[in-house]
Design a protein around this nucleic acid. Structure first.
Lengths: 205, 205
DNA sequence: GTCTATAACAAGATAGAC
DNA sequence: GTCTATCTTGTTATAGAC
């Protein structure tokens, strides 16, 4: 019997499923869902195509599994925003962690970006429930900081959007950034300096 | 004989080619190049599939024509940045125009976004030549403004990236922004206020 | 569990009548 | 210029041997 996403598995099965997901991440992030082929994924995973479909029911199944497994990792930095911490430190730490993810996990970023740009057909529900709940919760914290005069007044939701936009840009639009900067410059390193300046000036009361 | 991109055409041909491009923009921006099908484009254009291929040599041809036709429009706001103007006014005007494009041309923005995210296979050359030249030129202007103390010191290239990232985010990630804000709020309207605040605080010496 | 072979289908493109 | 019908290829998925 084929494994579906909620069934128990052996260690070997988990290992092979992990190999497939690693390969699929590479291919999906580069070509999108439709642009990717099972041949490419199988090749990258070092498996035959039918063997690949022994571990996942379908191409769609691989894609959904990837997306679901990533969501938690992706929002972890925001979840860790500490209401009891020093506001500017907490927010700048959030920016740094998010930028670090653009550096360490650009493929994951691009996978998400393409899903969202295309209307999030597979994760739209999670956006308006789980993600909205988390952002709303943290927005309350940020609003309280602003009301207390500990940071400059700012719309909390759009502040969070701006952190997403600015940090993910360096992963999602990496080709463009590098083309414009030229080969001698290090985009991610410079971004760290620039974004620290930007958010410091934005948030300092 | 089939028309290729550089041949003269009648008024009717131009009109039908325009209809195809409008339809293709709709479909490509939503599903990406590979995700889009000629059937969908033909349907949206109100033409039969072979008729569509009478006006364009191939699916690729439609896509390339779309992208090429858009590039100039897309960089026009940056090109119009006036070195002789008041620095903060010029830069805030640039932000507003770019945000306006996210409001008026979200499909164009998403088409570009997907092309870049996938590594810009069809426009990579233009990025490192034309676009780089334009950005470098404007970066000199911005650097001079900063050196003269007319705006706060800031890396010009990353300033421009931040304007792209922040404004295009509201078009490209529209689904996510709306899901998080909920139905009662107007993302683009709020963005105008937020981004004005952000760039004012960033640029004021 | 893994493979070769192949079924089944979708999609880009063309032929040829009108 | 536009259509119906069709060719051809690429791609997902399965059958069945080992």
């Amino acid at each position: 019997m084929k494994n579906t996403s909620a069934k128990p598995r052996t260690r070997i099965q988990e290992k092979n499923r992990a190999r497939v997901q690693e390969a699929a991440l590479e291919v999906f992030s580069q070509h999108g869902f439709r642009g990717a082929t099972l041949d490419q994924i199988a090749e990258a995973a070092g498996l035959s195509k039918p063997n690949l479909l022994y571990y996942f029911a379908s191409k769609e199944d691989i894609h959904v599994t990837l997306l679901e497994g990533l969501v938690d990792t992706w929002v972890a930095p925001l979840r860790d925003l500490n209401p009891g911490g020093e506001p500017q430190v907490e927010l700048l730490k959030y920016v740094q962690r998010k930028l670090q993810m653009s550096r360490d996990f650009p493929r994951e970023s691009r996978l998400f970006a393409q899903e969202i740009v295309q209307g999030a057909p597979r994760i739209a529900d999670g956006l308006s429930t789980d993600l909205k709940a988390l952002v709303d919760e943290k927005a309350v914290v940020i609003a309280a900081w602003a009301d207390a005069g500990r940071i400059a007044p700012v719309d909390p939701h759009h502040l969070i959007f701006s952190i997403w936009a600015l940090t993910q840009h360096y992963a999602d639009f990496d080709v463009q950034v590098r083309a414009v900067l030229g080969p001698a410059r290090d985009p991610l390193l410079e971004a760290e300096v620039f974004l620290t300046t930007l958010f410091t000036r934005l948030l300092t009361p």
